[in-house]
Design a protein around this nucleic acid. Structure first.
Lengths: 342, 342
DNA sequence: TACATTTGCTTAATCGTTTAAGCAAATATA
DNA sequence: TATATTTGCTTAAACGATTAAGCAAATGTA
């Protein structure tokens, strides 16, 4: 099949003996075009299988109708669910989304942002890589004058919208749950403090211990990148202690899984000897043995809100980016790994 | 910060008192521009923080440098790994990718294709939804004259490139492994026959049974959509039989997981009473108890080849889409769920 | 020296749309 | 009836790049 020249607005104009401008307006339902002409134009468009050239209209109107999404990875239920919900909301409004993944690399993340700006997206919705420490690069987005919305990783002091859960309170809830199960030496395998959400989880952990008059043992508070491998490593580190913990709260499900495998491998009874809690409510937490208690992060809600926040920006003319943090309540899902009454 | 007008090629031209055309050529390293001018242009471009307008160049040159990717979902290790590798190869060549997910819905898949065509992508790499029966919609892509490359789901008789694993032989390998473990009544929870790859797995299963002189029991051959829920349901169906199977080969890991949970729930010994094999080598197969034997599909290799295949198309002028199937050998990863000698 | 070629740029058209400005005819208003 | 407004279109410029064609100056060749 030879490459046919695509039908353009001009072809339609020729058929009807009107100007291309009239055709454009007819297709966009301009009020100054008669219904008769509109109908005729639309019919011819169908007949000729007219497909609008998105590039041309984007170039002229300055709007690409594309929204860029940056995530650490798509291969996680949390992020893919967020993405799916962003897509659902934005598709309805005529936007398409471009997904890019940073693979937890700061460098890739920067390149992704460049890619998106290069592609002339109308906005960016992002969650940062673990590595990302400063938000300087994101200034580029703001400088371009397009909306920037951060979620999950990326709570900030920039004048940028943010949507996430209440990590501080979640930590409280977790510690309180473990205390109610009779645990007295609760360890925390956390993320790096430089990421706000992980810092919040750590602060919540520390404050909750205080509240329950439990001493804070520095040996029991560990930072890592929360990969599954790191979870295993840090768990072994905890097991090597003279005075082992009787509960471990891991700030990420993948790392919790790594920890679980170490415990299972050593035939340590969960939760009797050591109780375990993860974070994120990834589907596998319900699948493994024992199932892992975790925290539901409301991925669907976060995705929807991120999209809606973007849409709001597009609606108001003024570019008054006022700090707008939306913090959702998280929910503890109690499973076998921490439920001693079962 | 007010929305600044972006610097264009014209601004650079003004600074240097040369024509915009010269600037364009300098930036594109045209041989007819002196090194001196090139250097000057590039310096000014940096000074003014020039960002090329992708839409404009795409419109003029007819190339968007965008490749569309369609997958059933990103939330699976197989697909996200394929995507990652496509991205890696294409980024190097200056292409960016747009990811869309069909969520296993034919209708959404069609909308995705429209979206991509609308966005003027230079090519499409796709894996079809389970629901997708005919490839008619994909004709639109071919009609537009841009390369179409299918992988995994989508082996076809269209004149379209395809990259996948050898499903027929994989089934043989699985059945032979189970036979070697002493299994005699091997069930198959498969995908729908209308999808070529699942049909191939079913054919492989049937032929392998024959080869080993095992009777084909229609009760032991079940088609479903291979969701986790379906896996559980079909496993229960098999357990309800008077003459239960002593091995179950499930054509997808998620469904295999569903089956596993049913078996575990009934305290049926795996693999002693019933051996279990999945397909896809999703990471959780190694994580659950017992770990699930599965088939590695070479997602990385498939992604790379898909990207390279696209690039080849862009290089040759002629649009001779000749049928080009690349079939890779799959690899059986034996784990606890089918290893009786452990 | 005379002519051909190469170098280094400019001019202007173009990609397919949108849109500001304008204009004639139809309709409304005074 | 005379003027103002609305309707329904056209013309032409614009979005920001690329590129074919052209041209003068520099360089090469005989």
């Amino acid at each position: 099949m030879a490459k046919k020249r695509k039908t353009t607005i001009k072809d339609i104009a020729n058929v009807l003996n009107i100007s291309p401008a009239a055709v454009s307006k007819a297709l966009n339902n301009d009020s100054r075009i008669s219904d008769k002409t509109k109908k005729a134009v639309k019919q011819v468009a169908i007949n000729l299988n007219y497909q609008p050239n998105h590039l041309a209209s984007a170039l002229r109107s300055g709007k690409s109708n594309l929204v860029g999404v940056v995530v650490p990875r798509t291969n996680s239920n949390f992020f893919s669910s967020v993405i799916q919900n962003i897509e659902e909301v934005l598709n309805k409004e005529g936007y398409n989304i471009i997904i890019t993944q940073s693979n937890e690399s700061y460098e890739k993340e920067c390149r992704n942002i460049d890619t998106l700006l290069f592609t002339q997206v109308d906005g960016i919705i992002a969650s940062m890589a673990n590595e990302t420490i400063n938000l300087e690069y994101y200034e580029k987005v703001k400088a371009k004058g397009i909306p920037l919305i951060l979620f999950d990783r990326g709570e900030n002091d920039l004048n940028v919208d943010y949507i996430g859960i209440d990590d501080y309170t979640s930590s409280h809830t977790i510690v309180e749950h473990l205390v109610s199960q009779g645990c007295k030496r609760i360890a925390h395998i956390g993320g790096f403090k430089h990421t706000r959400i992980f810092n919040n989880r750590i602060r919540g952990y520390i404050d909750a211990l205080k509240k329950h008059n439990l001493p804070l043992d520095e040996e029991l508070l560990i930072e890592c990148d929360l990969s599954k491998e790191d979870g295993s490593k840090k768990m072994e580190q905890l097991l090597a202690l003279e005075n082992r913990p009787d509960a471990v709260y891991v700030a990420g499900d993948y790392a919790a899984l790594g920890a679980l495998q170490v415990l299972n491998g050593r035939n340590i009874k969960i939760p009797q000897e050591i109780a375990l809690v993860g974070f994120g409510n990834e589907p596998f937490t319900a699948m493994v043995t024992p199932s892992i208690t975790s925290v539901e992060q409301h991925s669907a809600e976060i995705g929807k809100r991120a999209a809606l926040t973007f849409l709001e920006h597009t609606k108001k003319e003024t570019i008054t980016q006022t700090l707008n943090k939306q913090i959702l309540d998280a929910k503890l899902i109690i499973r076998d790994s921490s439920d001693k009454n079962n």
